[in-house]
Design a protein around this nucleic acid. Structure first.
Lengths: 192, 192
DNA sequence: AGCTTTGATGACAGCAACTGACATCAACAG
DNA sequence: CTGTTGATGTCAGTTGCTGTCATCAAAGCT
């Protein structure tokens, strides 16, 4: 066997999620996480850029990758909003059988403002990537950015409904419903 | 005159904006800001919760207040999407004659990730407030949240266009155009 | 006037997040 | 067998941020 126990990164992530859950994010120091993982504080920062990243740096492929790829690979004739729907389907796939884990993680995140910031950054980055993918399909501005933002909005709302206590339905239909609700609402203006 | 120079808070904000612009956000220490304002570091943190807040804590009424108020006060028969349009108009008013300042501020913010996080939090808070206002109008979920998210998306895109270099048009028409573009895009799906 | 209270600031000590520089030593390549 | 590599340890330092107590002009009270 090696000089050190294997999977230092994974041990750090596990220790962090445990401690954040047990005592809260702010009440947990990086030194404690490292100690529980049998490592030093310095090593923590070699694997994760900061104290929050340990909750967000999962193994690839990322949600963003799946979402973007589905849009890039959509048939050329697909309208932007239908490409978005395909992306939402692809995103939903990666959460199948993960609702329990997602709920625990979300509980930690919603309990702390700093972690919510990190999540917002992730979504903003996703929006930028979606807009890029749409522009690559020939969608002009500002439609590309707006479609991307709308996609993130639908994902956010759909995800919230999916992790809500008691919710039983799968993610994909919830995403579809949310997208339809957005369509209905934006069509609701009085005609000029 | 008093024991101290007046308007400590304003002097700190001025010194911070200058230094962030001159040398960058991360390269500026709170001690330097305080020194330029003729105060101590400890006093900085009595006026602003953290190093970022100095860029975001303007005097009321806030953008969010105006936006929400317009939605709350819209005639009862107004559809959600039209209430949103009224809110965007109200928000646009507070930026009249402020484009130069907004551009400088935005340059500082877009140059630094931490500051962008803070801005995202502001927008998320706005989204929550808009959703509350819409629910108070009787809009059910998930339509309320989706309309609110759409409103923030339109504001983001419209604002970006408004501060873009060379842009001459006022904010209100840009917001209207962006809202119309979102409507067009969400109406673009193939009928089932 | 004399006394008390108040509120903004200073001074100082301390914690924890994060960084840079260098040392260590099993594993591996040759 | 030797030199290199790469993950980790060690240590010192900077900086954002907080708690605590002292200071002292201004404003109010008697």
């Amino acid at each position: 066997m090696g000089r050190w126990e294997p999977d230092a990164r994974g041990r750090l992530a596990k220790a962090a999620l445990e401690l954040y859950g047990e005592r809260g994010y702010e009440q947990t120091t990086v030194a404690e996480i490292a100690r529980r993982a049998g490592l030093t504080e310095r090593t923590f920062f070699r694997h994760y850029a900061d104290k929050r990243e340990v909750l967000f740096g999962g193994p690839p492929p990322s949600l963003q990758d799946l979402f973007v790829r589905a849009i890039v690979e959509a048939p050329p004739a697909t309208t932007p909003i239908d490409a978005l729907a395909l992306g939402l389907d692809a995103a939903s796939e990666m959460f199948v059988d993960r609702r329990d884990f997602a709920r625990k993680r979300q509980a930690v995140i919603t309990a702390n403002a700093e972690l919510q910031e990190r999540e917002l950054i992730k979504l903003a980055s996703m929006s930028a990537a979606l807009a890029d993918a749409l522009r690559a399909r020939g969608v002009p501005e500002p439609a590309a950015s707006l479609t991307a933002e709308a996609g993130v909005a639908v994902f956010k709302v759909g995800f919230e409904r999916w992790v809500a206590p008691g919710e039983q339905r799968e993610m994909a239909p919830l995403m579809r419903e949310s997208l339809d609700a957005l369509k209905a609402v934006t069509a609701g203006g009085q005609a000029p």
